[in-house]
Amino acid sequence: MVPSEAKKYLSKEQFIHQAFSYLEKGVEPTVKTLWLNDEIQEKITEILEHSYPKLRLRYWQHDDQTVWFLDEIGKERPISFGISVKSQRINLVKVLEFRESRGGEIHMQAFTEQFDQIKLTDDNKLNKHIDGITGATMSVSAMKKIARVALMLDKEVR
């Protein structure tokens, strides 16, 4: 409802470290760039109902795993998410920064772990029901959409 100062839960570096914690010492994921051409923006728009306000996205890849950092507005202010996709299923999702005044509960593990192993259906929807949070409808919706975008982008770079 009201914009507010960002609550920072996790940095991008910490998220990458968590997502690739299984890698042996000295092995690093490759940093790559995906340019958001018209075709990709069209697919994003189908999910977010608006295009993504970037020309390109950096992502981190190792074997069949990709890590993405995406923002989406909940009610009024952007929420920053980190999403890791492995074998075309989400294996880690976190709220990195939250700027809305309501709906901060979406950062809690009890909520985010519902996304574990979720994947896309043929029509780019999530294949599992996510229990919402009362009074945080817009933040929950933003997180569900961003999960779909990350899974779709992962498919694009395969």
Binding site: E105, M108, A110, F111, Q114, I130, D131, G132, I133, T134, G135, A136
Partner: peptide
Amino acid sequence: YTAIPGLE
């Protein structure tokens, strides 16, 4: 209390 998804 809203610590459990779906519960308030």
